[in-house]
Design a protein around this nucleic acid. Sequence first.
RNA 1: GCUCCCGUCGUCUAGCGGUCUAGGACGCUGCCCUUUCAAGGCAGAGAUCAGGGGUUCAAAUCCCCUCGGGAGCACCA
Length: 508
Amino acid sequence: MSKVRVRFAPSPTGFLHIGGARTALFNWLFARNQGGTFILRIEDTDEVRSSEESVGAILRGLSWLGLDWDEGPTAYTERQLEPGAKWQEDSGKGIYMPYYQMNAFREGIYKKPADQLLNEGKAYHCYCTPEELESMRTRAMLAKRPPKYDGRCRDLTDALRKEHEAKGRKPVVRFKTPVEGTTHFEDIVRGHVSFENSLLDDFVLLKTSGIPTYQFAVVIDDHRMKITHVIRGDDHLSNTPRQVLIMEALGWGDFARGLKFAHLSMILGPDGTRLSKRHGATSVEEYQKQGYLPEAMVNYLALLGWSTEDSQQLFKIDDLIQKFSLERCGKSAAIFDPVKLLWMNGEYIRALSKPELAQRCLPFLKEAGLAASGEITPYLESCVALEQEKIKLLTDVPRLVDFLIRDDFVFDEKSVEKVLKVPGAIGLLMEIAGKMRTLSEFTAASTEKLCRDYAAEKGLKAGAVFHPVRVATSGRTQGPSLFHYLEVLGKEKCLARIDKTCATLAVH
RNA sequence: GCUCCCGUCGUCUAGCGGUCUAGGACGCUGCCCUUUCAAGGCAGAGAUCAGGGGUUCAAAUCCCCUCGGGAGCACCA
């Protein structure tokens, strides 16, 4: 049994979206589970839609998710792009370079097999213009027939060929699809799949520019890179017979028969249609910006179309790798549920150690101007820790800890109205402050005892003391555990805040 | 239009002929804990297994049909 080799082969025509990330993840999990090789290949043969920016976004997205590849372009983290430089200039890593298809094209990698098919009469030049093809298609549609190419250039005479050439027409290379027979292949998630060849038309292998089409490049590269399993979205299911046919025509029947496919179900938006921009965030980078943890995203994505027998929900990454299998991938499409992702993110945030959590929050704190020093101080770490169980998104943090860091926090009018602007509130606060001043140890335990004793002494409910203290020191009725944040704030600040509140209130 | 794929609680799913009066998770409801908000604990509502025919002593599980959803049919990938 040869070693597993899988690839994730995105086309750089946009950012890394949720569906692509899921495909990449399943490839990666399978490779890691099997002790195989995970390859990243950039399919940039679309001259007009491919972009430098997209390559960067894909590399960045994969890195963020922790999906490292064994062969492919140099990782984003190892190679920051200098201005003006191109990702494709990167030599990458691995023994089957290049991993950018346009680089392979420049090296003439696709020309040889195309010539072979041409010479053996398994492919031919087609001189039809886009206009001719278009009218062919509309006529077929009107006649209620499948919009297929009719094969008119299959047996072009030399004279006709010369005539086209004389007019300056550049040919494409078309594959001579067998008109009869059935093409079979094995799919790990779908089982045995077969298609009638008669349904397929003579599709294009090489464009007029000489650049290969997806169908052709994929076959050449999968063979070249000795891929053993093709794991991709099931939107490619009906492309598969074409690819198998090409392999057989090239004499790679053994390779074709050994190749295993796994067509993963699609991910849909909440309304059951294909996930798109109008469903909100669809790129993994947007989720990063919104404060999701990559490990939560990975865990959530793994559960979209894959499950264990006991429906386990939370997985440490090593656990996931160990339990993952293609056989347990489902066939039906799954709807992406942002609510469950959010829950899972909270789970992962709660599982983080305090220093780690603070570190993850740093970019968001900086952005909000709450990390003056630019790094995590012990004080900042304590502030974040106070809110840990409440955090669903890292972007929640600045809002949550703001009052602990800035002394000019704003008071919530409703809270002030309800809790402080009541008879006796100022007196109570001043007395509490007076007692606090005498405290030698200013801890959660000591301040709590102080407040409880005071309440008992005055015959008040504990809440009647706690709430004014909370609003006086934080500006609102909602927040972390009162005495714990008082301890973090420290005696001096607490007293200053209570005094200031009393002074302000007394004026009105 | 043609071809292919899919169809279990609102959602992700377990189930691979009897152990299913269909299990788990998110969400939802209630209760408990509690200084607030969360978190946590407990309980509950929620699926005649898309519908209809078969096969079988026995079907969510096997077969057929219908319906519904999705995908593909480019010199895009």
